[in-house]
Write a protein that binds this DNA or RNA. Structure first.
Lengths: 136, 136
DNA sequence: CAATAATCTACTATTCCGATAGGGTAATGG
DNA sequence: CCATTACCCTATCGGAATAGTAGATTATTG
C-alpha cells in the first residue's frame, strides 16, 4: 500500500503543475485544497525541495513552486524519493537491494523470481509516466 | 513492501509443490527448511487451508499437502488471500475498493490514475503466473 | 521594524507486524 | 483404547513505522 506521504506528495506536485503561472503557492493553500494536515504536508514539501523538485520562497508572497518542467519529472524518480524501493522485496530491488536473511538460495527462490517480474513491470510504467502525463 | 506473511506463504506453497509425491509435510519441516517461526507459519498454513489451497492430515504421519495442481494455482489469487489488495490505493482496487476521504474528485485524481495503471499491469503479471511457473 | 511564510527540532498517539505462549482438540498407530 | 502426534485456536506483546502535533526560529518583503 502506498503511504499517505507518497500520496500527498504526488498530489502536491500535481497541484503545483496545474497552476497557470509558476508563482509560489503557500503550504496552507495546497493543504486546504487537498485536505492534508498542514504540518505533515510541510515535511513532505521540504523533502521534495531537498530532492530538487521544488523551490521555496520565504516571506510575504512566498511559497513552493516547481523547479522543473512537469514533462521532465519522472514518476519513478518521485516514487523512490517519497516511498522508497519500487520492488516489493529488498532482494528484488535495484536501488535498495538487500539480501533476505531467511533465504538460503536466491537463485531458486520462487518469491523473488515473481517479485522481480512484478518490479520490472511496475518500473516500466512509472518510468513511462511524467508529472505532465498524470496531471493533465 | 510484501509482508512476511505473504512471503512465507508463497515459500511454503512452493515447498509443497516441489515435493515428489504429494504426501503430507509437517509444519516443523517446512519451517526449518525455510527459516520461518513455527507458530507464525502455522497460522499462515491454516489460512491457506481455509482458502482451499491446502489439505491437512492430523496424527502420526500427518501434515499439510497441496489440494490442487500447481498449474491451477493462480498467483493473483494467492496474493489476494495472503496480502490483500493488489492495488496500491484502495480507490484503485477492484476487489477491495474504498473511496479516499481526502479526494474531492476521483476522476481528476492524478495519483489514482497512475496507480490504476500500475495495478492493471501488476495484476496481469500475477494472473499470468501459476505456482508451477514460479516453483519449477 | 512588523508581518508573513518557510524551516527546524522534538514530541506524541496510533496502528500494524511479526512473533510467542499455552492450552485444546482431533486423528492416527500400536 | 490409549498414548502420541500434530493440527487448531486464543490471547498477548514488543518494536517499528506511520501520521499528525506543537513551538520556536529564520529569512523575506513592504
Amino acid at each position: 500500500m502506498l503511504s499517505k506521504k507518497t500520496k500527498y506528495g504526488i498530489k502536491a506536485l500535481t497541484f503545483l503543475a496545474r497552476q497557470k503561472d509558476n508563482s509560489p503557492v503557500q503550504i496552507a493553500e495546497i493543504a486546504k485544497s487537498e485536505t492534508i494536515s498542514i504540518k505533515f504536508l510541510e515535511s513532505i514539501l521540504l523533502l521534495l525541495r531537498h530532492s530538487g523538485f521544488l523551490g521555496a520562497k520565504k516571506g510575504k508572497g512566498g511559497g513552493y513552486y516547481l523547479i522543473k518542467d512537469p514533462k521532465d519529472i519522472n514518476m519513478a524518480h518521485v516514487y523512490r524519493i517519497l516511498e522508497g524501493p519500487i520492488a516489493l522485496l529488498p532482494c528484488a530491488s535495484h536501488n535498495f537491494y538487500e539480501p533476505c536473511l531467511d533465504c538460503s538460495n536466491e537463485a531458486t527462490c520462487a518469491v523473488r523470481k515473481l517479485m522481480i517480474e512484478v518490479r520490472d513491470n511496475t518500473l516500466k510504467i512509472l518510468e513511462s509516466n511524467t508529472l505532465a502525463d498524470i496531471a493533465f
